[in-house]
Structures are given as structure tokens and as C-alpha cells.
Amino acid sequence: MKAKKLTARERRANRKETPVSCESINLDPAVYSAALRYLFDRPVPDKSGQEWYWLIDEPEFNATPLQWTHIQTVLFANAGTDLAPYSDEQVGMGLNHVMSNNAGDIPHMVNDPSVPLADAMRMMRALPTLWRDCLGPRLDTGPSPIGSRSDRLYFVSYMWFDVWPTFWNAKDIPEWRDAMWQVFCEMLTMPFRAAQESALHGIGHEGVRLGRPKELQAHMDAFIRQVKHDDELKNYAQAAARGMVQ
């Protein structure tokens, strides 16, 4: 009897990937530890102060685009444990510097031509774990209106796919579109409202660029059907499916 051909989803489910660590991707652990200190071991400014990365005399972290890609990969995959020593405000500051190009080029590093596509895709596969193990649990402190919180950690979670230039730079590459879609799908299955809000916000901005309108609508319809006792999230998902979010 001829074996049944696996669907793409079944192949992904059966694929086992080595746990991400410095050793598994040939990243010097000393470089990774230094990057963690550079990004997160920082004082939180008072209301009249500025974050450390706006300081003119702040030295840049010396790493190649490939090293920064590997640093982000290990960070995303291990954020639950590696960021545990830092406060929510410190994590919010550091991740803001990772996601935004306002004060640096970290989010552009993975788009550099010197970075192999396989390394970029490994980083993307690690990205949802940032919400599953770190942002989601930290922000799971009770309901609040979508987009209403002003703390640094919530800003990073909610605004990531609005501010993050990485996918925009790679939106014409099919593998990147597929990877971005998988990130959103995985985040929508998480038991954390903050992760779902972030994914919906991202879909609202980037959904049209994913190149799968029917699949996107079907997935959003299924998500909306399973949301219970949360009309705000349902309405937000409906708006995201139409690209009507801010």
C-alpha cells in the first residue's frame, strides 16, 4: 500500500530541531554573554531621563551581521531563562533596541547579504519563543484594553511587528513570507493574550504582504470562533483580517 503523503503542516510537526544554544549554532558564549549585558544590564532612567542607547557617547557593540543574527536567535529561543535576572523595564529597553532601528541597526543585521538564508530562517523559527517563554508570561497580569498600556515591556510586545523593519526589508522573499506567517500562526495559539494581540497587530499591518489571502482569512475566522468571552479580542481580530489596525 502506498504511504500517504504528509501535508506541509504534518512535515513541520514531525521535524525535530536541535535546541538552540550558543554551541548548536557556533556562537561564542562569551560574545552572547557580553551582548546580554550590553542590551539588558542597564539602569532604568527616571521619567525625565533617556534610555542608554540614545546617549551619544555610548559605544556600539562590536559584532558582525551573522553574529548579531546568532545572538538574536539564541536570545529569542532562551529568553525565558536568559532574561530572568532582569526587570520588566530592563527587558523592555533591551528588546526595544533589538526590534527598532531608531537608535541602531540591530534589526537590519539579519537582512545583510552576508547572512545565509538558513541562518535567517532559524532566527525566525526561534522568534515566537520570545512570547511563549518571556513576554507572554511576564505580561499575563490581568486584562487591559488592547494597546492601552504604556510600560516598556508592553510597548515592545504590542508594537514589535509595527516597528520592526526586518520583515519589511525581506517581504519580497518567499521564504521570509512563509516564515512570518508561521510566526503569526504560532503566536495565535499561545495561551497569552499579549502574544495574540501582538500577532493580530502584525497581521493587520503585514497580512496583505504574506501573499495568502484565502488562507489568512480562513485562519482568522477559525481563531475568532475559538475566542470565548472576549469581544474586544474578537473585534480586533476581525479588524486585523481587514488590515484595519493602528
Rank of each mutant, 00 (worst) to 15 (best):
D57P: 07
E23S: 13
A35T: 01
E89H: 11
Y53V: 10
P45E: 10
G80M: 11
T81H: 10
F61Y: 13
E51P: 10
V91L: 00
I71A: 02
T64Y: 01
L83V: 04
H70P: 07
A35W: 06
A103R: 15
S33V: 06
L27F: 02
S21Q: 11
I71W: 08
S87E: 03
D46L: 11
Q90T: 03
F61V: 06
Q67F: 09
N62T: 13
V31Q: 06
P45A: 10
V91D: 04
G80F: 01
N78P: 13
Y86D: 07
N62F: 01
S21A: 11
R42S: 12
P45S: 05
A77T: 05
V91H: 00
I71Q: 03
D57N: 12
S24I: 01
A35M: 08
A79R: 01
N62V: 14
P59V: 05
L95R: 09
D57M: 08
A77V: 00
S48E: 14
Y86W: 02
V98N: 04
W52C: 12
P85G: 02
Q67C: 07
F76M: 03
D46V: 15
P85I: 05
H97R: 12
L27A: 04
L36R: 02
A84H: 11
F40W: 01
D82F: 00
V91F: 07
Q50A: 14
